[in-house]
Design a protein around this nucleic acid. Structure first.
Lengths: 144, 144
DNA sequence: AATATATCGTTGCGGATGCAATGATGTCAA
DNA sequence: TTGACATCATTGCATCCGCAACGATATATT
């Protein structure tokens, strides 16, 4: 048996992703209480303004149902607002509330600091690592 | 707002890991029917012989409960055998059956081929990518 | 205009996950 | 020896996830 799990890229990638996610969660969890899907929705809205569930679903690698439920929870917490899209009544516009913007202000800073920390850990391997990630992310992309 | 989700390493890492896992699942799923936890347990047993639930839990980044349930399913499929550890009756020895070894023979080849494919996709970035993964994997390790 | 087809968001449901008991067994110290 | 504490595997339970309906609305075709 030549195969070694420890050297298997899918396994290694999964372990690394899990650990990094946990480290990041530990940094913001107390303050934000956001789950990963909630965090992604918020982060996307912070940059994009008013957007539909479908837009987020496509841009942020989350199933429609997950975006929908995350949005409902965030609405319940007063972090975002849902409103009818004028013109196409199938769509729903999601946008951050004032409270949501305040939170994302803080989380953005925490995230930027963490990103810098990770890049420092990568050191000279950062460029190669990012390039590799790009290839793997592109490899399974849902083409449109 | 300076923060961009697309450039955020935890996000990128998660997306890459998910896509690679799906690609690998698509390669072996029809033949094996194994979930990720089941695959990890099998792969570990193929290399290590008789081992306890706890050993796998520590070596393979899975919760005890997940290992336990995966092992029960695999036992039901006739791929592994549970037996009492002589000496310490708290422990349970897990080991592949003949059928399990046959399956891992095939899966090992599939996995090796996929690994080669991924390394080819990384091309010149492979070394940097692996080095980066090493750092991130080490960074959250459960020290002992 | 009327019907068929496509798209959007939500919800149901089966299964997986993670964490905290639980019961059984081992170890250590008085 | 006895009792306190640690360790192991399993199980319960709340939650989350992914997929497949579903109802509502838009678009395309005739």
């Amino acid at each position: 048996m030549t195969f070694k799990l420890d050297e298997f890229l899918p396994y290694r990638l999964n372990v690394a992703a899990t650990r990094i996610s946990r480290r990041f969660a530990a940094l913001h969890q107390d303050e934000s209480g956001l789950s990963i899907p909630e965090w992604r929705v918020m982060a996307h809205l912070a940059n994009e303004g008013a957007v539909s569930v479908r837009d987020i679903h496509k841009r942020v690698n989350l199933d429609k149902s997950i975006v929908s439920r995350a949005a409902s929870r965030l609405e319940g917490s007063g972090l975002l607002r849902k409103s009818a899209h004028e013109g196409d009544r199938r769509l729903i516009s999601l946008e951050l509330t004032g409270k949501g913007h305040v939170m994302m202000e803080k989380l953005g800073r925490i995230a930027d600091a963490f990103q810098a920390e990770l890049l420092a850990e990568l050191g000279s391997h950062a460029a190669g690592f990012e390039a590799g990630l790009d290839r793997f992310i592109a490899s399974g992309a849902t083409e449109e």
